[in-house]
Computed example of a mutant assay.
Amino acid sequence: MPKHSKTRIRGLDADDLEWLAANPEPDPDLPPSGDRWSTWDQSTPTERGPKPHPVWLVTELAAVDTELGILKTGKEADVHLLSRAVPDTDRACLLAAKRYRDSEHRLFHRDAGYLEGRAVKESRMNRAMAKRTSFGMRLIASQWAQAEFSALCRLWELGLPVPYPVQIVGTEILQEFIGTSDGFAAPRLANVSEGLESLWEQLVEAMVRLAHEGLAHGDLSAYNLLVRDGRLVIIDLPQIVDVISHPTGPDFLDRDARNVATWFASKGVTAADPDTLATLLRREARLP
């Protein structure tokens, strides 16, 4: 029988490995450009913002999400700037992606008071959250993300000045980017020095409407209020408190009033008085 020569298979040398590292095979699950396909279809209708959706919002499934940088870091979550655009069209929008930290990070350093009244049905889950196990921390992250998204939806429908809540996927909340069309974020109230009398009036109106619904922001300050074109926008709402059902709800209402009124008073707004605002809010919330 004729002898058949064996084909010698050459192993990859250093040049081959270097070329492969520089020219990786494209991932078929990723778009040709950008960082991921739009996650719009990953949210159920109840995990999307209120209808009608704003005309600026890109909901096409052919859209691509591109990371543009980080807007804000915090102990509980980071906020990233995201562009969602349909390739080769003029359909594009900027979104703020708030991503709650996973269980490897220190979560919710002041959450104990806020979590009262948010117990889940399963005792195993409640024990895990109380003990801050890895599973419990993931539950807390999910609970806070859901609480913030629900609060944004509710307040948006009430006509309060909050970013439009686009969607929630796991512990990521996508919401309207408050800033310029070229990606510059609106300043925090703490960094604004003009038009403070008008901003104070806007804030009192918003807080009164919140109190009328039996709600308090829970952590309101000059650092979680944005100012865009002379208008206030309230952000950071995971800890929103039902002042009627929460054991210490009135205290949260008083603290919000004290924090913001003291700041405005320090800037020369004579109408800003903590006690007067607290009394007004308690009366609006029908509290003693």
Rank of each mutant, 00 (worst) to 15 (best):
L68C: 05
L61R: 15
L95C: 10
R101S: 04
A92V: 13
K98M: 00
L94E: 04
D88Q: 15
H105W: 10
K98D: 02
A62W: 00
D78G: 09
R99V: 15
D65A: 07
D65Y: 08
H105T: 03
A77N: 04
S83A: 14
V86C: 11
L81S: 05
P87D: 07
V86I: 12
L68F: 02
L94S: 05
L94Q: 03
D102Q: 04
H80W: 03
K72D: 02
L94C: 08
K98Q: 05
E67H: 15
D90W: 09
A63Y: 01
A85W: 04
D88H: 13
R99K: 12
L82Q: 13
L68I: 03
S103M: 07
L94D: 10
D102T: 04
Y100N: 04
T73Y: 08
A77R: 07
H80F: 01
L95M: 08
T73A: 09
A63R: 08
G74D: 03
K72E: 12
R106N: 12
A97F: 02
A97C: 01
L95T: 09
E104W: 14
A62K: 15
A85D: 14
K75H: 15
V86W: 03
L68P: 06
H105C: 00
A92N: 13
L61H: 14
S103D: 08
L68Q: 10
A62T: 15
V64R: 01
D65S: 11
K72L: 06
C93E: 06
A77D: 00
L71A: 01
G69P: 05
T66Q: 12
S103Y: 12
D88W: 11
S103R: 11
H80A: 00
D88S: 14
D102C: 04
S83F: 09
R91V: 03
L81W: 10
D78L: 07
L82G: 00
L81D: 07
G74M: 03
A77H: 10
K75L: 11
V64H: 06
H80N: 03
T89K: 01
S103W: 10
R91Q: 15
G74L: 06
D78Y: 10
R101C: 01
T89M: 07
E104V: 05
L71C: 04
S83D: 12
A62H: 13
L61E: 15
K72C: 06
T73E: 14
R99G: 00
L71W: 06
P87N: 05
S103C: 06
L61G: 13
D102V: 06
R106Q: 13
H80V: 01
V86M: 11
V64G: 09
P87F: 05
P87V: 01
E76V: 06
H105G: 00
H80D: 05
V86R: 11
A63K: 07
A85G: 01
A85V: 08
H105S: 04
V64Q: 07
V64T: 10
S83C: 13
E67C: 10
D78N: 15
E76W: 11
E104D: 14
R84I: 02
D78M: 04
L81A: 05
H105F: 13
K75R: 12
T89F: 11
A96N: 00
A77G: 08
V79R: 02
L61C: 05
L82F: 02
G69M: 09
C93Q: 02
D90Q: 14
K75P: 00
K72Q: 14
C93A: 09
D90T: 14
A96G: 01
D90S: 14
K75Q: 13
L81I: 05
L68N: 00
T73I: 08
G69D: 01
L71T: 01
E67K: 12
R106P: 06
